[in-house]
C-alpha cells in the first residue's frame, strides 16, 4: 500500500501503458515539455521521447482528427483537450469520424484512441472552463465514456481505456486531481462498464459518478445519522453503464436517486431514471429522483458557484423525498 494522488495515478497509468506498448503515443497542448496544465503527463517526455510525447499547437479539431488517422494507421493515441469545454471545437473528429469508423466501414478495424477531457466546477473557472458535458458523448453510438472517481479507478480506467480497441472518452474531474488515497502498489486495470458499490446500504440507492460520488457519500453519512442506510453506487463507466448493477441494488432498496454534477436536464441521470422506470418498475416503492446542476451556465463568483453545484444537502433531500 502507498498513498497516491489521483493525478499521479493517471500519470502512472500513462507511463505504464507507454512502457508496455510502443504504439501508445500522447499529444496535446502543453503536455510534453511543461508536463500538462494539470501535471497529468509530467515526465513522459523525458521517459519516452519527443517522438511519442508531443506538444501540439492550439488546434483541437486537428489534435483529435489526427488521433483518428493515427489510430487507423497503427498507433494508440491518447490526446488531451485541456478543458472539456474546448472539445466543442473537436466534435467532428469524435462524433463523425472516431465514433463511426468501425461501424461505417463494416467492422474492418477499430479506432483505438483515448480523448482525455478534464471537466467540472468548484474552482471558479467560469462558464467556459467548468462544464460537465459527458452526456453528449454517452449519446453517440461508437463511443465509450468513463469517469473515474477514485484514485485506483483513475489508474485502472486509464489502462482499460488505452487497451480498449474502440474510442474512449476519459473524463477526469479537475477537483479530484489532488485527491489522495491509499492504494495497493500493483493497481489492476478496471473493466469498462462495471460499476462499484462505494457504500453498501439497504434503504435507498444513490447512483452517481465522478466528484459527485464524494458529495453522495457525505449525504449518506448525514442520512445514516437519521437511521437511513443508503447504498451508493459509483458508475465508473457511463457508456456502457452497468444497468445490471443498478437494477440489482434497486431490487434490494426499492428507492433510487441519481446524482451528478452535470446539468440535470437531458443528462446521464435522465437515461438511468428512464431505464430503471422501465426495467425496474416493479421494484420501485417511490419516485426516482434526480439531482444535478440547474439549467444555467456554470457561474464564476464563489457564492454563485456554491449555489450551482449539487451539494450533500440536496442529495439527502432527494433521498428523503423518495422515501417519503
Amino acid at each position: 500500500m502507498a498513498e497516491l494522488r489521483y493525478v499521479r495515478a493517471l500519470n502512472q497509468a500513462l507511463s505504464d501503458a507507454m512502457a508496455a506498448d510502443p504504439s501508445v503515443v500522447v499529444f496535446g497542448e502543453d503536455i510534453a515539455a511543461a508536463g500538462g496544465p494539470f501535471g497529468v503527463t509530467r515526465g513522459l517526455l523525458e521517459a519516452y521521447g519527443a517522438d511519442r510525447v508531443r506538444d501540439t499547437p492550439i488546434s483541437e479539431a486537428t489534435i483529435v482528427g489526427a488521433a483518428v488517422g493515427a489510430a487507423m494507421t497503427g498507433l494508440k493515441p491518447v490526446v488531451e483537450i485541456m478543458f472539456m469545454d474546448f472539445v466543442a471545437i473537436a466534435m467532428d473528429a469524435i462524433v463523425n469520424q472516431a465514433a463511426k469508423a468501425r461501424f461505417m466501414f463494416g467492422g474492418q478495424g477499430s479506432v483505438p484512441m483515448v480523448v482525455r477531457l478534464p471537466h467540472g466546477g468548484g474552482v471558479s473557472a467560469g462558464p467556459q472552463h467548468s462544464q460537465c458535458l459527458e452526456a453528449w458523448f454517452a449519446h453517440i453510438p461508437g463511443l465509450k465514456v468513463v469517469c473515474p472517481a477514485s484514485v485506483a479507478d483513475a489508474y485502472g480506467l486509464m489502462r482499460a481505456a488505452i487497451d480498449d480497441p474502440d474510442p474512449v472518452i476519459l473524463v477526469e474531474n479537475k477537483a479530484l486531481y489532488a485527491r489522495k488515497e491509499d492504494v495497493p502498489d500493483d493497481l489492476p486495470a478496471v473493466e469498462i462498464g462495471k460499476a462499484r458499490i462505494a457504500r453498501p446500504g439497504r434503504d435507498a440507492t444513490i447512483v452517481t459518478y465522478g466528484a459527485a460520488l464524494y458529495t453522495a457519500l457525505e449525504a449518506a453519512d448525514t442520512l445514516a445519522g437519521e437511521g437511513v442506510e443508503v447504498e451508493v453506487i459509483d458508475l465508473r463507466s457511463l457508456q456502457p453503464w452497468d444497468e445490471a448493477a443498478v437494477l440489482e441494488s434497486l431490487s434490494r432498496t426499492h428507492r433510487l436517486v441519481v446524482a451528478h454534477e452535470a446539468v440535470e436536464a437531458f443528462g446521464v441521470g435522465a437515461e438511468i431514471a428512464a431505464r430503471m422506470a422501465d426495467i425496474g418498475f416493479d421494484e420501485l416503492d417511490g419516485p426516482i429522483v434526480r439531482v444535478g446542476a440547474p439549467f444555467m451556465p456554470v457561474p464564476f463568483a464563489k457564492t454563485l458557484e456554491q449555489g450551482y453545484l449539487p451539494d450533500a444537502g440536496r442529495i439527502a433531500d432527494a433521498v428523503r423525498k423518495t422515501l417519503a
Binding site: 504504439s23 503515443v25 517522438d51 511519442r52 479539431a61 486537428t62 489534435i63 483529435v64 482528427g65 489526427a66 488521433a67 483518428v68 488517422g69 493515427a70 489510430a71 487507423m72 494507421t73 497503427g74 498507433l75 493515441p77 473528429a93 469520424q97
Partner: peptide, 13 residues
C-alpha cells in the same frame, strides 16, 4: 487531420 494523424503514424512507426 486524419491524413495528418496517419502521417504521424508513418513517421513514429
Amino acid at each position: 487531420p486524419i491524413a495528418v494523424g496517419s502521417a504521424l503514424a508513418h513517421q513514429v512507426r
